[in-house]
Design a protein around this nucleic acid. Structure first.
Lengths: 340, 340
DNA sequence: CTGAAAGCGCTTACAG
DNA sequence: CTGAAAGCGCTTACAG
């Protein structure tokens, strides 16, 4: 059980010798090729079993010119957006017999280059680049011998294959949900205006209001920062200036938590008087607030899974450049229950 | 820039041909071996440059019997404990020219087996098994041909190499910190009693109190669940039953957040009247509470880094079984500022 | 049905 | 200093 001395990993030659056949025959027997007598096959399989032979995928790959590996290049492993994407991709590949090299560039271009070189020398068959913001990023440089798929953070080059979440539509979904709850005086408070995600959600929200023949409280989106503090502050300000506000669409769950805390302290009843919806569906926040928080889920695992699928296709030559935006969905909780 | 048609990756043969030398000489030139004329070396290097030749690490590995890869086996990628450990390990390996295969077993033993088989067939030189709880886990079965290091979740087999955080000492650290803040009536509220982490921290806390000649409020640790709700509830109960309580050591930041909310609603002044310390140093919680939360950091990246180092050593035959527990540290914030 | 041979891309003694 | 040869572990035509 302890990692004792290793008696040299068995090779196909060992198996062949033990079974008394050539290594060619041993290979065929083990790989289920047709042209092997049943009795011979059994003998080989038993020998393999006895030596706990595991075929060397490295050697096999060298011969076949394919390694069955891909590289997953992330810019930050702690990001709560990267991780789910990464999980989805890992899951999709794992099921398809592909092994995944993980590289964290830590947001550093030099380190990214270094990792790419290493991955290429290991002959990965493709790369997935996972980013932590939806703002388009510069594509990998130096035209690579393998296909690349950009996940969550799309490439600036529209000819590249990019998969991300549809934040514009998501903004509309959130507003539609609040409207469906009977709300009419809706405020949109969100994070840093320099984020494409913030802009996109706001655009979708504003459009949805317009289509409903209304406009957002204050006639605009309130940009700020992705923090509870901002949520608290802006909520109390809005409550003050627009006392008839009856819905808050928040650009993140953190902001929403701040908003909820603020409403609570102002004695406002959520969801009876005011509905609140967050964004990201981050469990630690959504299920611990009072009341629990309705939120928009970006389905990031799906983004990762689709990225894996697209990479597969690109590897097989069925590439199709362009950006795909996956739909988000609302996860309903107590903070937006329609109240008669 | 777009991944156009790949003109077949250049091989050493191509480089040799272009430079007009044998592949043996090309190999030596590229690898900086001494026995090559300077002029020849330049010619080879230029040819390599021109063809953007990248040596095939797979072929090289096959020859040398080492692949320069390791497997990182995690049980859950979403875990906020696994990720930092994983980051640390990835970082340590990346610096050492080792590439890392990532596998998420999703807590499923079957899937774990499947991944191990795949990794072994790819001839990884070692494995790091990352768990999400500090409870000892069953060791990998079927004696493996490569060394294994267990990170965060130690192996049940004391002969295996395990690295984890020293939760017992951490419990003592937290108490000592509260004592240093002048607190005497300290309560310890923590999570699920079935977790080794909860038990260990409680043990350390109780011992530290005893050594200071005191005992915890209520004469015991309050076990419950790892949630804000539990923190809120137990805090208000304690406040009720032991109104002289002046310090809370919480087994997690989530619990601490609940405690803080409860104290706040009861009109208690933190840190003036009561000091609070959490556990995990989870930014999203510690920096958004009012006041900001002092917490215990388990240095998980260090755990990952050390695990990588130990695996390195084990691969080189310098193995040393046993469990190593790394010290934790207090990150001081406003919730425990000593007040005169 | 079985096996000798060639070869994947590379490195390393060993002659010249 | 340079190159022919052997070989890492495997698979795949091609003979027998």
């Amino acid at each position: 059980m302890a990692s004792g001395e290793s008696p040299r990993t068995a090779t196909l030659t060992d198996v062949a010798r033990l079974a008394g056949v050539s290594i060619a025959t041993a290979s065929k027997a083990i790989n289920g090729r047709a042209q092997v007598r049943a009795e011979t096959r059994t003998r080989v399989l038993e020998a393999a079993e006895q030596l706990s032979f595991a075929p060397n995928a490295v050697a096999r790959g060298l011969l076949q010119g394919r390694t069955g590996t891909v590289g997953l290049l992330t810019s930050d492993l702690e990001g709560r957006f990267s991780i789910p994407v990464l999980m989805g991709a890992e899951d999709a590949f794992g099921a398809g017999q592909v092994s995944v090299f993980l590289c964290d560039a830590r947001g550093d271009a030099i380190r990214e280059q270094h990792h790419i070189r290493a991955l290429l020398s290991r002959r990965v068959e493709g790369l997935i680049v996972v980013g932590s913001r939806t703002d388009p990023r510069p594509p990998l440089t130096g035209d690579l011998p393998v296909p690349v798929v950009y996940a969550y953070a799309p490439s600036e080059n529209p000819a590249d294959i990019s998969i991300t979440a549809d934040n514009v539509s998501a903004g509309g979904l959130a507003i539609d949900h609040l409207l469906a709850c009977g709300r009419r005086r809706i405020a949109h408070v969100t994070g840093d205006a320099s984020y494409a995600a913030a802009q996109d959600r706001a655009r979708g929200a504003e459009r949805a209001m317009k289509e409903a023949g209304m406009e957002l409280v204050g006639g605009r989106t309130f940009f700020g920062s992705w923090s509870e503090g901002w949520g608290r502050g802006v909520a109390s300000m809005i409550l003050d200036q627009y006392p008839d506000v009856d819905g808050f669409f928040c650009g993140s769950d953190q902001i929403a938590r701040g908003v909820l805390d603020s409403l609570r302290e102002s004695g406002k009843d959520v969801p009876r008087a005011i509905s609140v919806i967050g964004f990201d569906d981050w469990q630690v926040l959504t299920t611990n607030t009072r009341p629990q928080l309705t939120s928009v889920d970006m389905n990031l695992e799906q983004v990762g899974r689709l990225a894996a699928r697209r990479l597969f296709e690109a590897i097989e030559g069925k590439a199709a450049g362009g950006i795909e935006e996956l739909p988000c969905r609302i996860v309903t909780r107590e903070s937006s229950v329609p109240v008669p």
